[in-house]
Computed example of a mutant assay.
Amino acid sequence: MANTVRNQPGVEKITVEESNPLNNIERSYEQNKKRINTILAVVVLGIVGFLAYKNLYKAPQEAKASHAMSFPQAYFQQDSLNKALNGDGQHFGFLKIASKYGGTKAGNLANYFTGLCYLQMKDHKSAIKYLKEFDAHGTSVQYPAYGALGDAYMETGNTKEGIESYMKAAGNKNDNVLTPIYLYRAALAYEMNNQPEKAKENYKRIRDEYPQSMQANETTRNLARLGVLD
């Protein structure tokens, strides 16, 4: 719609277009229609691709990996560590499952068991490698995994990393069994690292928070040895 300014002496007739927001939007869409439609198509294809990956690829991979884990886990429970790691010729071991099914939960768990195997075989550097590969967050073995990593670090003489791992392993305050164990190991490591005050803090936590634990009596003796008698 146009408005016309009336002629006045010395003033030229001017036509002014009124601004219409709907017209502006429509014009903008027409100008960018191809680009907008391309973006929408990419988004839709991305969603379809993700759903296809999840349902047609990821889910079957999870099932295969979970099934494959049953064989090396059985060997692990029998202390047949070589077969647990490398397989028996018919079934995969933890190493193969970790590499072949790395994007699955079972493949992730295979890293943990691989680390435990190497730890028991006293290959501590390999144990550290695979325990660090394991994404422990939110798993049922989160705290034991940190504890195993602490053991591996201590065996290599890396007391600092050992302490850090033990303290992470002691992160579940509601666990009356594992938490005092790892607090105690961290306390001993603090003493080895010439940090007696830190060791005392851990011993006191065990004494005060976990008095029924197996570590409580030994903790009291260690505190007395460090000069804490109250």
Rank of each mutant, 00 (worst) to 15 (best):
E26I: 14
E26W: 08
R27A: 14
R27V: 05
S28K: 13
S28R: 12
S28Y: 15
Y29T: 08
E30D: 11
E30H: 10
Q31H: 12
N32M: 03
K34C: 06
K34Y: 11
N37D: 10
T38I: 13
L40N: 08
A41F: 13
A41K: 05
V42Q: 04
V43F: 09
L45Y: 09
G46K: 10
G46L: 06
V48W: 02
V48E: 02
G49N: 07
G49R: 00
F50T: 12
L51G: 03
A52V: 12
A52N: 02
Y53T: 02
K54C: 03
K54E: 10
Y57Q: 07
Y57I: 13
P60G: 06
Q61W: 03
E62V: 06
A63R: 14
A65E: 00
A65G: 04
S66R: 07
M69T: 02
P72K: 07
Q73P: 03
Q73V: 06
A74Q: 11
F76D: 03
Q77D: 10
Q78P: 01
Q78T: 01
Q78D: 03
D79S: 11
S80A: 14
L81T: 01
L81P: 05
N82S: 14
N82D: 14
K83M: 14
K83P: 05
L85G: 06
L85A: 09
N86K: 13
N86T: 05
N86L: 10
G87K: 03
D88V: 00
G89E: 08
Q90D: 13
Q90K: 13
H91G: 02
F92Q: 13
G93S: 03
L95I: 15
K96S: 14
K96V: 11
I97S: 07
A98K: 06
S99F: 05
S99V: 05
Y101D: 09
Y101C: 10
G102Q: 00
G102E: 01
T104Y: 01
A106E: 01
A106P: 00
A106W: 00
A106D: 02
G107P: 00
N108V: 15
N111C: 04
N111D: 10
Y112N: 02
F113E: 15
T114V: 09
G115F: 08
L116K: 04
L116R: 01
C117V: 13
L119F: 04
L119G: 04
Q120N: 15
Q120H: 14
M121A: 14
M121F: 03
H124W: 15
H124K: 12
A127G: 05
A127P: 02
I128S: 06
K129S: 01
L131A: 04
F134R: 00
F134D: 05
D135E: 15
D135C: 06
A136M: 15
H137W: 12
H137G: 10
H137D: 13
T139Y: 08
T139W: 06
T139F: 07
V141T: 14
Y143G: 07
Y143P: 04
P144I: 11
P144L: 12
A145N: 09
Y146K: 05
G147W: 04
G147Y: 00
G147S: 02
G147V: 03
A148C: 08
A148K: 08
G150S: 05
G150H: 04
A152Q: 06
E155Y: 11
E155I: 00
T156S: 00
T156C: 02
